[in-house]
């Protein structure tokens, strides 16, 4: 097993771990952290899987860079919305019904 394949498997592990946290937790910050773990997992999967057979591949590396910025933007937006929600409701979880 090459190092890249190792990364891919770690990526799968992180995805599953993140998914578990995303479903289990109700606190919004924890769900966001879980989302970020899942995101890192899928980035590892993207790079690791591609580089397993072909050696260094700049294309998935660049895509991961793009993906990271997108994930940062989404997380930041989610935190802003969360802080505003916390401010008006005093809650850190979403109402279950609606």
């Amino acid at each position: 097993m090459s190092v890249a394949a190792f990364y891919a498997w770690i990526g799968v592990g992180l995805c599953v771990l993140g998914l578990f946290g995303f479903i289990m937790h109700r606190h919004l910050v924890r769900r966001l952290l879980a989302f970020n773990i899942m995101g890192s997992g899928s980035f590892l999967l993207l790079v690791g899987l591609a580089q397993d057979d072909r050696g260094v591949d700049p294309v998935p590396q660049a895509m991961v860079l793009t993906g990271i910025v997108v994930a940062v933007a989404s997380t930041a937006l989610a935190l802003v919305v969360f802080r505003r929600w916390f401010r008006v409701s005093g809650e850190s979880i979403l109402p279950e019904d609606v």
């Binding site: 910025v69 997108v70 933007a73 989404s74 930041a76 937006l77 802003v80 919305v81």
Partner: peptide, 10 residues
């Protein structure tokens, strides 16, 4: 553009 959208929303 995605990053800018996040700021516009904030």
């Amino acid at each position: 553009a995605v990053l800018l959208v996040a700021v516009v929303v904030a």
